Amino acid sequence: MTATHKPSLLALLSACLWAATPSPAAAAERGWYAGVLTGLSGQSDQTLRLEGSAPETGKAAFSSGLLAGGAVGYRFESGWRLETEFTYQSVDRDRAVFSNPALQGEGNYASTGFALNALYEFDLFGSPRARSYLGAGVVALTEVDIDFETTAGERSFSGDDSALQLLAGVRYDLGERWFLDLGLRQLRASSLRLEGERDTLGRVRGDYRPWSLTLGAGWRF
């Protein structure tokens, strides 16, 4: 899936939700909610830098991966929402172009993190059940890990850092309590420093910028 297809896909799926028969909803009321989500992740090719006794720069090509997580939040009558969230996401790496044979082959680029998100809901579709939203979050990446699967075994580099994420989507009420959530997000962390876990190869520096198309379900207290 290319980046140019993501907004059109979101618009199509949102329109399908809007087309359902509307009924009055209590969504405009303030209150607590909780939800879980899963999704498909991807990331563009990234430049990785190996630092240590034999420094070099290589290119890594990525394909798709998965995201899973959950959130607890509070909605204000003004349309603003604040929520805390935990997510795990991973993208598979097809190849890495390094001359060092210990840093070649397939692998993945994964993270776990806690986020504090601020989101604003607005009426884009004219339906009492569907509410669009835009938002941003501050993310504490508790672990970022990149693995290299080679003939000599797995080589891993890991670390922690902070990041920002942007979010957009639509929520659709199934009733007074339950809702579905369809969203797009991108997480951006630059110049991560990932230390070698079991060897003396040094460290890997690189950007971590996965995007995700998510589907979630939740319940208002």
Rank of each mutant, 00 (worst) to 15 (best):
T2C: 08
S14A: 10
C16R: 10
L17W: 02
A20I: 14
A27T: 10
A28K: 04
E29K: 07
G31L: 10
W32H: 08
A34D: 00
G35D: 07
L37M: 06
L37H: 05
T38C: 06
G39C: 06
L40M: 12
G42T: 15
Q43G: 10
G52H: 00
A54C: 05
T57F: 00
T57P: 02
G58A: 13
K59M: 11
A61P: 04
F62E: 11
F62Y: 09
S63G: 15
L67E: 13
A68R: 02
G70A: 10
A71S: 10
V72N: 01
E77W: 04
S78W: 00
S78K: 03
G79V: 14
G79I: 11
W80N: 09
W80A: 15
L82Y: 03
E85F: 08
Y88C: 11
Q89P: 04
Q89Y: 02
S90I: 09
V91E: 06
V91Q: 08
V91N: 09
R93G: 15
A96R: 05
V97F: 03
L103S: 02
S111Q: 12
T112H: 08
G113K: 02
D123G: 11
F125I: 15
F125P: 08
R129W: 01
R131P: 04
L134K: 05
A136I: 11
A136W: 00
G137W: 00
G137I: 05
V138Q: 07
V139M: 02
V139W: 00
A140R: 08
E143L: 04
D145V: 14
I146L: 05
D147Y: 01
T150C: 09
T150R: 08
T151D: 11
T151C: 03
G153K: 06
E154A: 13
E154F: 03
S156V: 02
F157N: 04
G159Y: 00
G159C: 07
L164Q: 09
L164N: 10
Q165R: 10
A168K: 05
R171A: 14
G175K: 07
G175R: 06
G175P: 05
E176K: 04
L182N: 09
L182G: 12
L184Q: 08
E195S: 10
G196N: 03
E197D: 13
E197Y: 00
R198M: 09
T200R: 02
G202M: 02
V204L: 12
R205A: 11
D207I: 11
D207Q: 08
D207G: 09
Y208H: 09
R209K: 12
P210W: 00
W211V: 13
W211K: 06
W211D: 15
A217T: 12
G218E: 03
W219F: 13
R220V: 14
F221G: 13
